Simulated scan of single mutants.
Amino acid sequence: MKSYIQSNLDSLQEAVVALQKDAPAPDADGWSATQDAAAVQKMKTDWKKARTAYEHVEGAIAVLFPELDISTDQRYDGFIATGPDDDLFDDQGVTGIHAAERILWSDSIPQRVVDFEKGLPYYVAAAFPANENQAREFKEKLLVRLANDVQEMRNQFGPLALDNSSAFRGVIGSMKEQVEKANKAASGEEESRYAQFTLADMRANVDAGVYTYEAFKPWLLSLDGGKALDTKIAAGFKRVQDHYATLQGDALPEVPAHWSSQEPSAEDLATPFGQLYQVLSDESEPEHEGSLVSSMEASADLLGIPRLP
């Protein structure tokens, strides 16, 4: 597990350094959607590589380095909840991977996301850098801060002895959040909302969950009752991954117009989004006997892994 997390942190650092390097050189007109199209597309590719690497380690990082997790992965609405940020290109206030995402995809943000953010206090519309100063700040402040924060994660993680609670319970937390990540799409609050990359985020979380579980599996199988739990966990991961395999692309399916997670209608549950929601809701419910999360929590208890505070 230590090696897996370290490898993904290395990939994350490589991707954010490339993102900073590929940002257009500052000039008088900032960025042009036509003249800088190739550079923007390259940065989007770098961003997706960084995002995938981060989602592979999110469960552990959020527990180990909560402040760095905020500066790196906090969403726009979380940053501005306590005050305005009138300069979205510098290294203060709104920072991190979603701050860069919001700028990179500013010309193609879905309307439901715009509608949600317009209702936030201190909202400032997303935009490409409009002048040399903004382009310089994006390249030399915002992206440098992101690269520095990731480097700090790597520096702090290197000498750590990874503990079982962070590794295993952290992943259980990520599996619980799958349904929440999907449901936030209904209000435009989803995680990678600008790039429409949230389904890819969720796939990466599940891939990390499978990898983590495999590291603990031999230990579980050595205990009485471990084999039965292993069978249930494997079946739970398969149900989620099999359903993900039916969905194309990186974006969540379209949310039904009148979606309600409290009382979804049979008609809405029959849609691709509703079917995904039902699968994730079932598998993330700790009180649901045989669900993925229920089985993983039972296995953690059997292993004697303490619950996170």
Score class of each variant (00 low, 15 high):
53 A>C: 10
54 Y>S: 07
55 E>R: 09
55 E>C: 09
56 H>T: 07
57 V>F: 00
57 V>Q: 00
58 E>L: 03
59 G>P: 03
60 A>D: 05
61 I>R: 01
62 A>E: 15
62 A>W: 07
64 L>F: 05
64 L>W: 04
65 F>M: 14
66 P>K: 04
67 E>C: 02
68 L>S: 09
70 I>T: 13
71 S>E: 08
72 T>K: 01
72 T>S: 11
72 T>E: 10
73 D>V: 01
73 D>K: 09
73 D>N: 15
74 Q>A: 13
77 D>W: 07
77 D>Y: 10
79 F>S: 10
79 F>K: 09
79 F>R: 08
80 I>T: 09
81 A>K: 14
82 T>P: 01
82 T>L: 07
83 G>E: 11
84 P>M: 01
87 D>Q: 05
87 D>C: 00
89 F>V: 04
90 D>A: 04
90 D>V: 04
92 Q>S: 12
93 G>M: 09
94 V>L: 07
96 G>L: 01
96 G>T: 01
98 H>G: 08
99 A>G: 06
100 A>F: 13
100 A>Q: 04
106 S>K: 02
107 D>W: 03
108 S>R: 15
110 P>A: 07
110 P>K: 09
111 Q>G: 06
111 Q>M: 11
113 V>K: 05
117 E>K: 09
118 K>T: 11
118 K>E: 12
120 L>F: 04
122 Y>M: 07
122 Y>G: 03
126 A>Q: 11
127 A>P: 03
128 F>H: 14
130 A>S: 12
132 E>S: 14
133 N>C: 06
134 Q>A: 12
135 A>P: 06
135 A>K: 02
136 R>A: 14
139 K>N: 02
143 L>D: 00
143 L>M: 14
145 R>E: 09
146 L>T: 01
146 L>C: 05
147 A>Y: 02
148 N>E: 15
149 D>T: 10
150 V>C: 09
150 V>E: 06
150 V>K: 04
151 Q>W: 00
152 E>D: 14
152 E>K: 11
153 M>G: 05
153 M>Q: 11
154 R>W: 00
155 N>D: 11
156 Q>I: 06
156 Q>D: 12
157 F>P: 10
159 P>V: 09
159 P>G: 07
160 L>D: 04
160 L>E: 09
161 A>Q: 13
161 A>M: 11
161 A>K: 11
163 D>I: 13
163 D>M: 07
163 D>N: 15
165 S>M: 04
166 S>I: 13
167 A>G: 01
167 A>W: 06
168 F>R: 05
170 G>S: 08
173 G>W: 02
174 S>E: 13
